Amino acid sequence: MKQEVYNSIEAWFNSYVAGFENEIEEIKLNINLKRNHSFRVVNLIAELSEEANLNESDVILAQIAALLHDVGRFEQLAKYGTFSDTEDINHIKLGIATITENNILSELTEEESKLVIECINYHNELVLPKSIDADLLPFVQILRDADKIDILHIVSDYYSNNKQGNNKRLEMELLDKTDISKKLYQSICDEKHVDFKDVLTLNDLKLSQMSLIFDLKYKKSFKIVSEKTYLKQIFETLPKKDLVIDMYRQMKIYLENQL
């Protein structure tokens, strides 16, 4: 796998994203947010690659998947005005359709193309199927880790440094209520990544994003999250109810135990 192949796909990506220029300030903000997110995930792949035992060619292939993993978000945002996935408006389906229709992976072999598509398909799954191919697994895992690390980067910065309600799409248009979902609480007590269907409020969303740590694979990933204090930053924006403190303590202990 040559770097030139990645560079060619990156050139298409930049041109594609540029086509979503929008006069609505929040749409423009989120287009840039997703573009920058994609490139940070690409860079995180390089940071995690040694622990994932990927060779130089594998890293480039994983970075192609990283660059394209959220390409469906641009159409989802510009056309439908949302980041919320439904059966009909799903960013993974939209992304794979865009990649296929534009023949973006033409410089890859059939096997490599299939791997990239499978990585994109699995990157947002709550639980990976046990039947997943062993050769595919490290590529999927490294993308999932890199994606989750940067999600925590984005949301911890937003909740800490931006006025609430400034980006309703990033907040998934959820109401800011003090209630905490009982199913969410149970998932965190069980050290499981929260299912989005159990997220009912903005505070639920924050806690579910914190619970992404339960799905991390690599020690380096836990180290980055710990050093950047993402969990603490999000916790500081939550109501200090006993329930919330208990969940934060549980996640903090879990994170420390992985280091």
Rank of each mutant, 00 (worst) to 15 (best):
16 Y>V: 06
18 A>I: 04
245 I>F: 06
40 R>D: 11
142 I>E: 05
169 R>A: 14
157 D>Q: 06
105 L>S: 10
4 E>M: 07
115 L>C: 03
112 E>V: 02
97 A>L: 14
24 I>D: 15
137 L>Y: 10
254 Y>T: 12
148 K>R: 15
172 M>A: 12
221 S>N: 03
153 H>M: 10
129 P>F: 04
192 K>Y: 06
242 D>S: 13
63 Q>N: 02
57 S>H: 07
115 L>F: 02
247 M>I: 01
101 E>P: 05
71 V>D: 02
72 G>E: 06
229 T>R: 00
147 D>A: 11
253 I>L: 02
167 N>D: 04
111 E>A: 14
21 E>W: 04
37 H>S: 08
250 Q>G: 08
172 M>Q: 09
197 K>Q: 03
113 S>D: 14
83 F>H: 12
250 Q>Y: 06
244 V>C: 15
33 L>Q: 08
130 K>W: 00
243 L>N: 09
137 L>N: 07
194 V>T: 06
186 Q>A: 09
190 D>K: 13
189 C>P: 08
68 L>P: 11
123 H>K: 14
176 D>L: 12
89 I>F: 00
162 N>K: 13
93 K>C: 08
4 E>N: 05
16 Y>M: 08
137 L>G: 01
48 L>P: 14
91 H>G: 14
135 D>Y: 06
160 S>R: 07
138 P>H: 02
64 I>V: 15
62 A>L: 05
86 T>Q: 07
34 K>R: 11
54 L>M: 06
11 A>K: 11
206 K>D: 05
117 I>P: 07
49 S>K: 01
246 D>T: 10
33 L>C: 13
200 L>N: 12
74 F>Y: 12
230 Y>N: 02
242 D>L: 11
239 P>S: 13
42 V>W: 11
40 R>N: 15
230 Y>M: 06
87 E>L: 10
96 I>D: 12
16 Y>S: 13
3 Q>F: 00
24 I>V: 13
53 N>V: 09
222 F>W: 01
164 Q>T: 13
220 K>F: 00
117 I>K: 15
29 L>A: 12
20 F>A: 01
46 A>L: 09
177 K>L: 15
22 N>A: 11
49 S>E: 06
27 I>W: 02
138 P>L: 05
240 K>L: 10
244 V>N: 11
